[in-house]
């Protein structure tokens, strides 16, 4: 299928884009709990070009969803965005008023949440829920034009026009998920964040939904951030993979490099733990458990589980640096300091 191009073609697509569409600058989010302050996102920097697809992976609690919510400015108390900026298409979202932010959601940046299919209102027809978004964002558009636009959006995700008049319970899980994607792309946002969009679906439907996202993304030229812990899905879908651990990026690499020669020891362990057809019966989990955000180990947060731990890792936190073209890693194995 032509929507799933080979890697070489994907990389040439990236080459054409010049201007960053999404920039995160030192984004920091904390949750204030009774037991103390948990830094769920610890100064994250990220730049993405138009049409790029980034996969964000990490264990539960590593800050993936927090990052998505922070970008949408949907962090609720006891959580707070402490500092940092989210720039989408030259607009700093963190500087917008609440009113302007409401308009920016869906038109500049949209979010397809985990288990999105359960977010549809069961007593409203699908059409009414799409129209709702249109009315909020483009109230001046004539009604029949709005409706035509909604139906085009449904058709672009492979749904028939009659879905517009149906109730959510009349649709299968995969169809509901595609309705949510249709809502997400209704206003042609620059950035689409999909938080485990297929975790509740079975493999066949999952492939169809992912191919839908892929096709739509190409049509509107949006940047996609796919959040999940299914590395298989990442291998099939994204251009770049970012590995998160305890609210920090450990490594960002092009998908090919990430799978064939991962750099960070955590990324290496993650890739090694994947089942494939060659290593039947070999189970390689990652030893140890992820630390609590309330009591992070000093230095590199991964050092207690790291097989290559050095003295410096216990004392100082490694900077997140470029070590090869297009690849960044936060590990002293790759930085000057370790060598001296």
């Amino acid at each position: 299928m032509d929507t799933m191009l080979n890697v070489a073609a994907k990389e040439s697509d990236i080459g054409q884009a010049t201007k960053p569409v999404l920039e995160l600058e030192n984004l920091r989010v904390s949750y204030y709990t009774d037991a103390g302050r948990a830094i769920a996102l610890d100064g994250v920097d990220l730049t993405l070009m138009a049409g790029e697809k980034l996969g964000l992976v990490g264990e539960s609690g590593s800050g993936k969803s927090t990052m998505a919510l922070a970008m949408m400015r949907m962090i609720k108390p006891p959580g707070r965005i402490e500092e940092g900026r989210v720039i989408v298409d030259d607009t700093d979202l963190t500087a917008l008023s609440e009113q302007d932010m409401l308009r920016a959601r869906l038109s500049k940046i949209s979010y397809i949440p985990q288990g999105a299919m359960n977010s549809l209102n069961p007593v409203l027809r699908v059409g009414a829920q799409l129209m709702d978004a249109m009315k909020a964002h483009v109230p001046d558009m004539p009604k029949d034009e709005m409706q035509a636009h909604c139906i085009r959006s449904l058709e672009s995700v492979d749904l028939k026009a009659n879905v517009f008049k149906m109730f959510p319970h009349e649709l299968s899980g995969g169809m509901k998920q595609r309705v949510c994607i249709a809502i997400g792309i209704l206003l042609k946002p620059k950035v689409i964040i999909a938080d485990e969009p297929t975790s509740a679906l079975d493999v066949v439907t999952q492939r169809q939904v992912m191919e839908t996202i892929d096709r739509v993304q190409k049509q509107i030229g949006a940047t996609v951030i796919l959040i999940g812990h299914d590395m298989g899905l990442m291998a099939q879908f994204v251009d770049k993979v970012a590995v998160m651990y305890t609210g920090r990026f450990m490594e960002i690499s092009p998908v090919r490099d990430m799978f064939l020669k991962p750099a960070h020891p955590y990324a290496q362990a993650l890739i090694r733990s994947l089942p494939n057809l060659e290593n039947k019966g070999v189970f390689q989990g990652i030893p140890g458990i992820a630390p609590s955000l309330l009591s992070l180990p000093g230095g590199c947060a991964f050092h207690p589980r790291c097989p290559f731990v050095m003295d410096i890792c216990r004392e100082q936190r490694p900077p997140f640096e470029t070590f090869q073209e297009n690849r960044q890693v936060a590990c002293y194995l790759y930085t000057e300091k370790a060598r001296s």
Binding site: V203, V204, Q206, M210, A235, Q236, F237, V255, F259, L277
Partner: peptide, 14 residues
């Protein structure tokens, strides 16, 4: 089997 997202960069959907 064709729909499994294999975590293998050399075995792709499509």
């Amino acid at each position: 089997i064709d729909s499994i997202p294999w975590p293998d960069i050399n075995r792709r959907w499509g």
